[in-house]
Design a protein around this nucleic acid. Structure first.
Lengths: 160, 160
DNA sequence: GGTCTTGTACTCGGATAACACTTGTCCGAGTGTGCTGGG
DNA sequence: CCCAGCACACTCGGACAAGTGTTATCCGAGTACAAGACC
């Protein structure tokens, strides 16, 4: 089954929230806001940190912050940070196996099946790469109201 | 990790081969041709049969055959038969959870994140749905030579 | 010689274990903050 | 009153189990073919 890690959804929501944050936000707060497991969310935030999308500061008032403008972070980058950048389809070169195997030197170019799957994968990634976190934030303001993100930001800071 | 079942590759190859076959081909022969586990390949062929893409006949000279012209079977149909038609991304409605949860009646339309992921999934499926098994067979004839498929067919029938 | 019966060998189909990966959790290392004591 | 030192509390980071889905396998049900016996 072609299945995406559930943590991708959390990571996307967190990035949208962080795009409105002005001060470092700890993982605990983000987990409480979304009502998910703090430990497990922390794991995914580590992945985002490792990919260079968010920056972590330790210490008492530490937490996570975007490393650059939300307009410069695409959904694709977040998905690949969490889920890996390897294509969903991996060609095992079946044509080179069995009694009628093709010679290795005739297989310099990928077979038709691998090319079709690769094209589809590319279309998927291109679609995800066309949307930025800023777009998601704008979309949220349009549908849920412009006060949504500031309200979330206030809750993160003061708890009310 | 977004990962596709390995059996998808086998199923696609089998369908291309079957598009050139004129008589029922048993799963054993297909497994031997591709040098893969016969039992496991049989499982995937069952899925294709259940989806109505191939038809099975039992008995001594039985086997599998396409139910319709190769030009009427798309790659997408094969992938969905093996791997399921459920989208890779499943929205868990995070916005309705936590201390700042949105009301249920304000969530009649999917959130922006779910829409972006849905669009990407649609692009992926659209790309796969544009290619038919006949296209793959033609492509194979162009790159590996026009004699390839007839030769495979002869091997399936006579073993030489 | 033709036809019916029977046996056989071959096919698919679904139920059954082993493995891998995702999911979920925990505790230790590191660091900024705030307090305390002294100058 | 100002500054240095220190202890603390809070943060992230990576290492450690449990659940779920994929991978791989086997054996039983069903069927067409072929041989053989009978008319």
């Amino acid at each position: 089954m072609v299945k995406l890690s559930g943590g991708v959804e959390w990571a996307l929501h967190c990035c949208v929230v962080l795009s409105a944050a002005t001060e470092p936000t700890p993982a605990t707060k983000l987990a409480e806001l979304h009502d998910v497991s703090p430990s497990y969310l922390a794991k995914h935030l580590q992945s985002l940190s490792g990919a260079g999308l968010i920056h972590s500061t330790q210490g008492k008032s530490g937490g996570y912050l975007l490393t650059r403008s939300a307009a410069d972070i695409t959904v694709l980058q977040i998905v690949e940070a969490i889920d890996g950048a390897t294509p969903a389809f991996r060609c095992t070169e079946v044509r080179q196996r069995g009694p009628l195997a093709a010679s290795a030197e005739s297989c310099t170019i990928p077979c038709g099946i691998a090319r079709v799957m690769g094209d589809a994968d590319r279309a998927w990634r291109e679609s995800l790469g066309a949307v930025t976190v800023a777009d998601l934030a704008d979309e949220l303001s349009s549908t849920a109201g412009p006060a949504t993100l500031p309200r979330v930001n206030r809750w993160l800071q003061t708890g009310t």
